[in-house]
């Protein structure tokens, strides 16, 4: 389907001053095309904020503790020891906090199959203070070093690691996928390198942990490189239809491909004015 396909049909009915059935179909097709194009354009834009790891100073720990007690303690306990409503955070590490709070998953909005990504509730400084505080409660994964987040590693190695360790849930193009009982692996498009890295080392929610013995920090850097390369290159063949594979392609050919062709057959067999 394309503008090319339909416009002559539409143009013709304008010329003859009579609305043919093809014109309406063509109009709808063009409209949907633009909507789809705009959607693709919007979803291709990415945000790339890098967190700066906060220094582990006593003041930061204090500030973080205050923030924690005001915003997180209801579920996770006054000293992060956990409660019936939320797990203990002792030993989850600063990386976990930066991921959960930095992507807006925490504080959790309500109970559901899993915590959803949503607008971030804190400034990066506050998140850093929270992370430092939780990190101080017990040893755990810390916020990754910036040298692993530059997306300048070996894309080929990263792509292979990604296919073997990640693609079954997140889809080869990082478009996300379904899990059991309403849970899902989120899309990785537009996720910051730091958050990708932190997710791997902390294993948020149902995601398994990929510790540094499993995938080395360099391997994680390569994975980030491959994902960011894919984002940068985009879809060489045109609009990517959400990278959802044959289902999207099949729906497209039935609705738009065959739709356009049928609209044209109506025009071809309609009696000329």
């Amino acid at each position: 389907m394309s503008r090319k396909t339909s416009s002559p049909a539409a143009g013709k009915s304008r010329r003859t001053g009579r609305r043919s059935p093809a014109a309406a179909a063509a109009l709808i097709a063009v409209g949907l095309l633009f909507t789809g194009g705009a959607y693709a354009a919007v979803s291709a834009t990415t945000a790339n904020a890098q967190p700066a790891p906060a220094a582990v100073s006593q003041s930061n720990v204090e500030e973080g503790k205050k923030l924690f007690q005001a915003n997180c303690a209801t579920c996770h306990g006054l000293n992060a020891q956990g409660s019936p409503d939320g797990p203990s955070l002792i030993g989850v590490g600063a990386a976990s906090v930066d991921f959960q709070v930095g992507t807006g998953r925490m504080p959790m909005q309500g109970h559901g199959p899993q915590a959803q990504k949503k607008p971030v509730q804190f400034t990066q400084d506050q998140i850093n203070q929270l992370a430092v505080y939780v990190g101080s409660t017990g040893p755990g994964p810390s916020i990754p070093d910036a040298k692993y987040l530059d997306a300048d590693g070996d894309a080929a190695n990263g792509a292979e690691l990604f296919r073997i360790n990640c693609a079954m849930c997140h889809n080869v193009a990082g478009a996300g996928g379904a899990l059991t009982e309403g849970k899902f692996a989120p899309s990785l498009v537009g996720v910051t390198p730091a958050h990708i890295y932190e997710a791997m080392i902390t294993g948020p929610q149902n995601m398994p942990v990929f510790n540094d013995m499993n995938i080395s920090p360099e391997g994680k850097r390569d994975i980030i490189t491959a994902l960011k390369y894919q984002e940068k290159v985009g879809n060489p063949g045109g609009i990517g239809l959400g990278s959802l594979g044959p289902v999207a392609e099949g729906l497209f050919i039935w609705i738009f491909g065959l739709g356009a062709v049928v609209a044209l057959t109506v025009w071809i067999t309609a009696k000329s004015n």
Binding site: G203, P208, V209, N211, M213, N214
Partner: peptide
Amino acid sequence: PIKASDVTLGSAFH
């Protein structure tokens, strides 16, 4: 090769 100690709780190795 993988050491038993590499496999922390919640890990999945392929």
